[in-house]
């Protein structure tokens, strides 16, 4: 930027907008943390928060694991294979990203709550409506497209000729994938995993629709925040909120550390 930028009205205006934007964002988060953090010790001792933390960790870890395992093959197909209607599938994948989570949740509720398929799942003891499994399902549904996107751009950044060279050296397609493409996608997998996990921890709308908000049953951290707010327990709400903020900051840090160069995944090492 020029040295005497403040002498120009236009520059001054732009900088002012930027300044107040950052100020507002910082104040909003900081106020909550200043008010909530001192009480976090007490809040952590409450059995309800402990339950919410446990349930959040449990559901988010499982849903993240599912997202990884499903996203890698899907991303591989989209990145490497010549399939018909590829752009249609790409758009379809982006849809849940644009959809409000409550709408996604309603979609899931309709499938699992009102169809013969849902009834059949119930029979084999896979019930998703108003259950913990429902929370996991909601998190997967909302986050999977996101994970697929990260993995797709990661795999695209790995030179396909490397995999092919591995083939000429004797690898089967599966071996070439395991020995070349997957290790070279490591940073993308880490970044995608961390951000997916953080998003799963914070998943609210879809989980609320499918699994409901029942204390000590489907009460994750964001649901706990919501329940405490609606009963006027601001302190409890702030405790949950602060935990979520801390987790977000840490995971953003990790995401940037690894995600920063997963576009250049072919260089690695």
């Amino acid at each position: 930027m020029k040295k005497n930028w403040w002498q120009d009205k236009f520059n001054l205006f732009m900088v002012a907008v930027a300044f107040f934007t950052f100020l507002f964002m910082m104040t909003a988060v900081a106020t909550l943390m200043i008010k909530g953090l001192p009480q976090i010790g007490k809040a952590l001792a409450a059995p309800e928060i402990q339950f919410a933390i446990r349930l959040s960790l449990y559901t988010s870890l499982i849903s993240t694991a599912f997202c990884i395992v499903i996203a890698i093959p899907v991303a591989y197909v989209l990145a490497r294979m010549d399939i018909p209607m590829k752009s249609f599938f790409n758009t379809l994948l982006d849809l849940p990203l644009a959809l409000p989570p409550v709408v996604s949740g309603l979609c899931l509720l309709i499938i699992f709550g009102t169809t013969a398929f849902g009834a059949w799942l119930e029979e084999i003891d896979l019930s998703f409506v108003f259950t913990v499994k429902g929370i996991i399902m909601a998190q997967i549904f909302v986050n999977l497209p996101f994970m697929i996107r990260v993995m797709k751009s990661t795999i695209l950044s790995v030179n396909p000729r490397l995999e092919f060279i591995a083939r000429t050296l004797g690898c089967t397609p599966a071996q070439a994938f395991w020995k070349i493409t997957l290790p070279l996608s490591k940073n993308g997998i880490i970044a995608g995993t961390v951000i997916t996990w953080a998003r799963a921890l914070g998943e609210f709308g879809a989980a609320l629709m499918l699994a409901g908000a029942t204390r000590f049953r489907t009460e994750t951290l964001p649901i706990s925040l919501f329940l405490n707010m609606s009963t006027g327990d601001l302190e409890g709400a702030m405790a949950a909120a602060n935990l979520l903020i801390i987790i977000s900051i840490i995971s953003l840090y990790i995401f940037n550390k690894f995600g920063g160069d997963f576009i250049g995944g072919t260089r690695g090492v």
Binding site: T168, T172, I180, G268, V269
Partner: peptide, 18 residues
Amino acid sequence: PERREIGFVYQDYALFPH
């Protein structure tokens, strides 16, 4: 490709970076 008994030296070498 894995059964063609071919050695390929690419223009950009295509070494495995990891």
